[in-house]
Amino acid sequence: MTEKPTPTTSRALDAPFIAESAEVAPAARLGARSRIWHHSQVDAGVRIGEDCVLGKGVHVASAAVIGNRVKIQDGCGVFGATLEDGVMLAPGVYLLEDQAPRAVNPSGHLKGRKDWRRDPVTIRYGATIGANSVIAPGVTIGRYALVGIGSVVGHDVPDHGLVMGNPARQLGWSCMCGHRLNDTLACPSCGRLYHQRPYGLSLAT
């Protein structure tokens, strides 16, 4: 059965919606109008902004910080990452944060919270991560970058960078609207023009 928010007042319209089967820790912060769908889990210490959507079976953990108008689709794992406004994670994306993953420490005991150093991913404004991609710990994905489906990204991606593959390679540039730019850094779809900058591309003014 599909559950739908049934607001009755303007204040209720702003309340976040949490599906019955989702688990949101009381200590997590959830912004206005954000929706958490079936079987998703949001741990304590996580902050989620306004107007976000978390699809089915998403796990957000380890004090991750998520901005406004972020879409996280079914089955994603967000571990400690920072997602700026307008980011999209397609289904099955994993953002990792442990550079030296081990179940046990050298003395053979199960590793606990203090046995590892967090090195989370940062995804900047408007970037999109394609389905089933994995982003390695410590990587920064630039503004409006586009990661192709099934990629394994181990290095930073510049603003508007278009990367794909395992290991991911940069194959071009992507527009704000999501289309690939042509050789003159113009968008064949919306006509926007860009200039090369040291950190990637920016809109031509």
Partner: peptide, 30 residues
Amino acid sequence: LDSLGRLTLAVLLEERTGRPLPDHKMLSVR
């Protein structure tokens, strides 16, 4: 050649020439 075509091109060239082609150099190829 779309983005997938460019990826295929880079990988096949590296396989057949045995030499790496850095992404930043391939990006400027028109």
